[in-house]
Structures are given as C-alpha cells and as structure tokens.
Design a protein around this nucleic acid. Sequence first.
RNA 1: GGUCACGUGGCCGAGUGGCUUAGGCAACGGUCUGCAACACCGUGUACAGCGGUUCGAAUCCGCUCGUGACCUCCA
Length: 475
Amino acid sequence: MENNLTIYNTLSRKKEKFEPINPPFVGMYVCGPTVYGDSHLGHARPAITFDLLFRYLKYTGYKVRYVRNITDVGHLVNDADAGEDKIAKKAKLDQVEPMEIVQKYTNSYHKNMEQLNTLPPSIEPHASGHIIEQAEMVEEIIKNGFAYEVNGSVYFDVAKYSETNNYGKLSGRVLEDLQNNTRELAGQSDKKNSFDFALWKKAEPEHIMRWPSKWSDGFPGWHLECSVMSTKYLGDKFDIHGGGLDLQFPHHECEIAQSKAAKGEDAVKYWMHNNLITIDGQKMSKSLGNFITLDEMFSGENKLLEQAYSPMIVRFFILQAHYRSTLDFSNKALQASEKGYKRLMTAIKTLNNLKASNESSIEVRGLKEKFFNALNDDLNTPILIAHLFDGVKMINLINSGDETISKDDLAFMQKLYNDVVFEILGLKDEEGAGNNDEKLSEVIELLLKLRAEAKKNKDFATSDKIRDELKEFFF
RNA sequence: GGUCACGUGGCCGAGUGGCUUAGGCAACGGUCUGCAACACCGUGUACAGCGGUUCGAAUCCGCUCGUGACCUCCA
C-alpha cells in the first residue's frame, strides 16, 4: 500500500514515515474512557483525532483494526495505595450496582461519539471482561522476575526492570529524578520503591468490585488492561498506540514496561499523543471541575456557554487545531468555527450545483496535492482546512461567473471535496436544525417556498411574517 | 522543587532561516436584497522582551519574563 504519511512518534520525538509492520494490515489501539461520568469536551479530542487517522488509513486502502477500550473495573479515586474504587464510589452515591453505572455511561459515551460522527472502533473490549488475561500477564511478569507479591498485592519492580531496560524512555523521565521527586504517600506502602506500580491490588473489605485470584480477592492494576487487551487483539507487536498527553506518564510508560517484562519485546511501534483542551489556559478535566460535558455543548446548558454548539461545530473546531497543540475553549472561538463550518458546507452545496463550461479558467487540480500533503504531514488538519478554503474561493468565483470550470475538472473537484471533507475529516452536513426529522424539514421547505412566492408577489407582510415566526422556532 | 512544552496581528490558529501578505472569525469597504439576515468580492494589523549566530531569523543559540503540562485518577 502506497502512502506518504508521516506521524510524530512520541518515542523518538520526531516525525517518522509511517510503515506498517504487516501491510496491508494496521493495528491501532487507543485508550478509551473510564466510564463513571458523562463524557466531556476533553474526550472528544482523542476520539476525533484517532477517528481521523482511522478514516484516513482506511481511505488509503489499509485494513485497519481499531481497538479502543472501556475502562470499567474501577480504578482508584485518589492515590495509588489507599483509595476507593472510582466506579464503586459513584455507585454508592447513586444507590445502584457498579455495573449499572458502567452501562449508563458507556451508553452515553457511545451516543456522544456517534453524534460527533466518529466511526465505532473495530473492537471495544471491556477491562472487566479480561480479568483472566490480566491475571495471566501478572503471572508472566512475576515468572520473568519483574514483579513481587506483598500481602496479596503484586507490584511491578521498576528498579529491577531498569537494570536491563530504559524505564522512562517514552516520557523522558529519569529514574533517579523519580526517586527524588515522587511524593511520599500517606499511610504505609507495601511497595519496595515509591515508583513501583500495582499489577494486582488486594481489595479492602468495603471494595465492591473484586475478582478472585491466586494472590487475593482484588482487582487488576490500572495500567494492565491496556497492555493485555492491545496485544490480545492486535498481536505482541502492533503499529499505533494513541491516547491523551496526560496518559503519557505514568500510564503509557507503565504499559511499555509491563509488555516488555511479559513478552520480552516492545509492543508498540508508533506512540501518538493528542494534546489537551484548555479553558482559560487551564486543562479541562474532571478533577479540576472546569469541564463542559458534550451533552451540555450540544444543548448549550452550561453557565460557560453562550449558546449551543452542534456536534459538527465541535468537530470542526477540534480539527482546526493541530492535534499536538493545546486548544483553548472559548465561545468566541467556537462561534468562529461555526461560521467557518457553515461557509464550507454552503460552498460544497454550491459545488454540487455548479455548471460546467468548455474549459477551466482556473487551476483546480493542484488542490488535491496540497490537501494530501497537509494530511501526510502528521495529520495537519489546520493546513488542510486552510487549503479547503482556497478551493471555496474558487467555487464561489465560478458560481458568480467570474471564473469557469470544465466538466472534468468539476467532477474532479466534487469527488475531491466529498472524499476529503466527508470521508476523511468525517464532517457531515447538519442542515435541518440538527433534527433528522425528515417530515419536519419538508414542512419547513414548504414554508420557505411560500415565503419566496409571497416575496415574488410583493406581499412583504406575509413573507416577513413567515420569516419572523420561523425565527421564533429557531430556524 | 524536578522534568518537559509553549508564548504569532482584536480573537482562534498554521508556519521553523530568505515571496506562505497561511486559513477561519471579527472589523472596515463594496455586491446582492423591498428591508434585514444569509451569501459573495476586496482591505489592514503579528511574530513576549533582550542579546547572539548569520549576508539574512517569527524560525537557530543564550538569558529574562509569562503561561501551561506531567511528577496523583484523568482524554
């Protein structure tokens, strides 16, 4: 499969040519959500970034298996050693079964992701469905001498691992620094070193989510599920592992260590990290409480929001920034995206109705190369979108009669825009007030037709009435 | 405190040595329109500060200031 894609590999801190291990197949694993709350704007970013990559690789012709997990075994609320299960905590509050929480928020995550027009992953494994495999990996790691058991819990021995491996190579951390800087946690710790991390945790009596194992009734460590489920479905070596920048350390660093300790070789070829969405320059996150849920974005029901922003506006907003840059949320920025997005959609409609001439007075073929060069440069969607607007200008000039386009060139443009905007960028036209009620939009069409007729007959009273009343209903 | 990023015009946001006046939004001027909205065309302002390297730096190096991320569950 031919491609000129380069992607930034966090491991090497450089852009590298993308060469699959096993073409035409591509294996891609992305860290999914912990399902204990509504998904927020921050969740949209990796979902859209890697949806774009998924779409583009498929468009190029690769057979892509995209795995994105659901974390539902409940990780700890606060610190590693003496916390409460996050999901169990929420369950107690709501007086429901933990798995009910899991189901509820998995459903809402799916709904939001569909609204954002992200394609469902090929496989969406749940951590709770892979307890046995996780226990097996713990055993492998113990057998290979990189883990130790204390009081029913099993910890990864980072110091031992570091004798023969470079712990910290992904995040650029140095073990000595970690030793000096890791905060002393309150309470006793069974760990040999503060930087060791749990592979299996013995559950305290009040801990609801628990599974039996040879070490204790407990639950798997937080980094283990990704190591296990990625290699289970993509093989011991696979192409791409993605996730948010905040997962780089310790989560992904630990994954690397676990996989290497268990299998003897690195599992991942390209590590990709999307940057965070900020609000007033600060990271938007659950712990800071400054997040806006996607449902709120779409409905406008949040104090920070001046209006509702439809899923495609959010998608376009995110695509207008490069995935490795921070993206600052503001109403102004969203509103700008809304206008830009509508302008693009209008132009595409115009393009589809354009009349061809005998020959083209402008050069349109060069656009394609510009579009794909941008995409190939580490998915530089802001540049791609800038070039899309170059084409928008051409389309409008042709439409106004200032330029002409040949039949072949027109067909070329139509296919190009359709492929790039809808298939690859995953945008879609949301006309009809975001309602997919076809009957309703037909009725509106009818009203608009009536208004046009009234205007034609200089019956402005009627036409203005239709306009104003429709406005009342937000159209 | 340690490690690592970043600082571009009114706002968002690309660009990493020499014509990209990137692009979007806003602003301004115009076209269209019964008025308006929409749509379309055209126009301006920039590279945090200081110093250095270079024929030439927004782009490389150093320092200063500012902001942020990670070091603890987090996308």
